[in-house]
């Protein structure tokens, strides 16, 4: 008699959410970082409303991408240090599925707050309402892909000195397509051109990442813990 995979998946998701809930103070950091980065751009570029509107989508997307990148480091670190990750890999349930629960939990506590604050940032950058909606939709489809891809890099660099910088080096080229489609969608919306093709692409990449990435992340964790 063994518990079902769904039970184990739930238990992992619940555990990670509980852990985050007990460290509420850390939840705000990516959001503050995101807002601060975005507000640096007007200081650097000047406050011309037309200019900000045209570069706004790019700024928000790059900001979101960097905030994701920074928050990723915490994805497995504590579990690696206290041995929980070992226990996860030892489970009779497939590690890739259990890992997907951890990635989902991570996205819920870091990605979703970023989403929630984008309308505000859109206002700061003078984006019209339609572009704001498209920006939100793009981030909704894109940030889970960033979290997923990120999990592979974090798993590969576990326990390495200066892992943080290495994570960025590994991830930036992989993040490029999400940036292209996400920022492109908003750019298209500003020009009143169709945006659905971009959403299809973002959705396709998300679907691909959801299917393949947990396998790669589980393999990466085995490689990192197996020595």
């Amino acid at each position: 008699m063994r518990t079902s995979l769904a039970t184990a998946w739930w238990a992992v998701l619940r555990r990670d959410l509980l852990l985050s809930a007990r460290r509420l103070g850390e939840l705000g950091n990516p959001v503050v970082f995101f807002a601060a980065v975005v507000s640096l751009f007007p200081l650097a570029l000047g406050a011309d409303a037309g200019l900000l509107r045209s570069v706004g989508p790019g700024i928000v997307w790059v900001g979101a991408l960097l905030a994701c990148l920074l928050s990723l480091e915490g994805l497995f670190r504590a579990d690696f240090e206290d041995g929980s990750l070992e226990q996860l890999l030892l489970s009779p349930h497939p590690a890739s599925v259990l890992v997907s629960a951890k990635i989902l939990a991570h996205w819920l506590v870091t990605g979703v707050p970023l989403l929630l604050i984008t309308p505000l940032l859109g206002v700061l950058l003078n984006l019209p309402p339609l572009a704001q909606t498209v920006l939100f939709g793009g981030l909704l489809l894109g940030t889970p892909t960033l979290s997923l891809l990120g999990s592979v890099a974090v798993a590969l660099t576990l326990g390495l000195p200066r892992g943080g910088l290495l994570i960025s080096v590994l991830l930036l080229p992989l993040f490029a397509p999400v940036l292209v489609f996400g920022a492109g969608a908003v750019g298209s919306a500003l020009l009143e051109m169709p945006v659905l093709p971009y959403f299809y692409m973002l959705g396709a990449e998300l679907a691909l990442a959801v299917t393949l990435v947990p396998l790669a992340t589980a393999a990466a964790l085995r490689a990192s813990l197996g020595s």
């Binding site: 063994r2 518990t3 184990a8 460290r23 030892l90």
Partner: peptide, 19 residues
């Protein structure tokens, strides 16, 4: 063990993971 979790919570997770 997750340090911020209680003893009971940790055991419950362990049981689910072990099957």
């Amino acid at each position: 063990h997750g340090l911020a979790l209680t003893v009971r919570e940790n055991l419950r997770v362990a049981a689910a993971l072990q099957g």
